[in-house]
Simulated assay, not measured.
Amino acid sequence: MPQTRLDTDRIRAARRVIDPVFLDSPLYRCDALEPELGCAVSIKLETANPVRSFKGRGTELIAAGLGAGSVVCASAGNLGQALAWSGRKRGLDVTVVASRAAPAAKLDRIRALGARLELVDGDFDAARERASDIARRDGIRLVEDSLDVETCEGAATIGLEIARQAPSAEVVLIALGGGAMATGIGHVLTELAPGVEVVCVQPAGAPAMTLSYRERRVVTTESTNTIADGVAGRCPIPEVLDDLLQVADDAVLVEEDSIVAGVRMLFEHAGLVVEPSGALGVAALLENRERFADRRVVTVVCGGNVDPAAHRCWVAPRPT
């Protein structure tokens, strides 16, 4: 069994706490993608819920554990929406700190869900520092994505579903940012489906966690440069890296052109509107055709909160 901070019995119990609207998301084979990618591709669709990402699974556990009071988090957009949704349902006072550069669609949705939104200059890690300051100043709970084990064990319920829904899967591709989804799904699959290869995918323009995985130590970067804002962190969390090293078989980096191509392919061939982070698995298939040729692959489409104008540019017909 993987020696991580996660516990499989708690993960199973989490399904009784998480709102069913986030559970049992569709997993289906997408034949239309296969001629382009050269393998049997199944999509695990984590956008078909009220916050259009997998993050609600973890925030449900956090909000249920708090019961009442105030909470603050830093977010690139999706965690903030999810915490606002879970908190509103339970009467929590939610503050979200985000970068001014975060997609406007994500920020607008956080406000619409009733959370207090504070914007900061800089990137996600600057928002994380500000959220920590607010928590200390006001004496309230700081939710730290990936460090808080609830966020990992909530995401791990996806792994339970993959193991049940796709018993013949050979590879699962998981977007890698802070690491909650990768460590959660990886923990479950390592225990329940040890023959499945767990491959994490990160943009080459935001490589900190992948570099850390490869060097087996925390590697920080000075900046990020990627359209996949949801996974654009610079400072990996040591505890999360320790977990990832136990459950991931590999971590790969993909280029921006491949991410855009993945967004376009999911729109054209699967009818899905996804944010760049949700297309990382398809990007990895595009860049590693020989490695995944003729294999049965599940890719987790983890988010669909995308700026409409940017998405129109990415999926626009290409010049012939």
Rank of each mutant, 00 (worst) to 15 (best):
L83N: 07
N78K: 11
A169E: 09
S86K: 12
M181K: 00
I185S: 01
L119M: 05
L107I: 13
S70T: 06
V120T: 05
A182H: 02
G184A: 13
A169V: 15
E170I: 04
E161P: 07
L113H: 14
R116L: 00
A166P: 11
V120E: 06
R141I: 00
A131H: 10
D145P: 01
A155Q: 15
G69C: 12
A175P: 15
G186I: 01
A166R: 04
A112F: 01
G159N: 08
G177W: 04
K89M: 14
D145K: 08
R164Y: 00
L113A: 06
Q81G: 06
T183S: 15
V171C: 12
L173C: 12
V143Y: 09
A112R: 14
G122A: 09
A104V: 12
A175M: 03
G91K: 13
A82M: 12
I110S: 09
A115I: 01
K89P: 05
W85S: 03
I140C: 10
S146Q: 01
I185Y: 01
I134D: 01
S99M: 01
S132M: 14
R128A: 14
D108L: 08
E118V: 11
D121M: 05
V149Y: 11
D138R: 13
G87C: 03
L79Q: 03
S132V: 00
A135M: 08
P103H: 01
Q81N: 14
S99N: 00
V172I: 07
E170L: 11
E129Q: 12
S168D: 15
C152K: 10
V171M: 12
R90G: 11
A156W: 11
D93R: 15
D123C: 04
L117I: 00
R164F: 07
L66C: 08
R90M: 13
V71L: 13
N78D: 12
T157Y: 11
I158F: 06
G80Y: 03
A82L: 05
R137K: 15
I140N: 05
A98L: 13
A105G: 04
T183V: 15
S99K: 01
I162W: 01
G139E: 09
A127W: 12
K106M: 04
L119F: 05
S75W: 05
R111Y: 03
A166Q: 04
G114S: 13
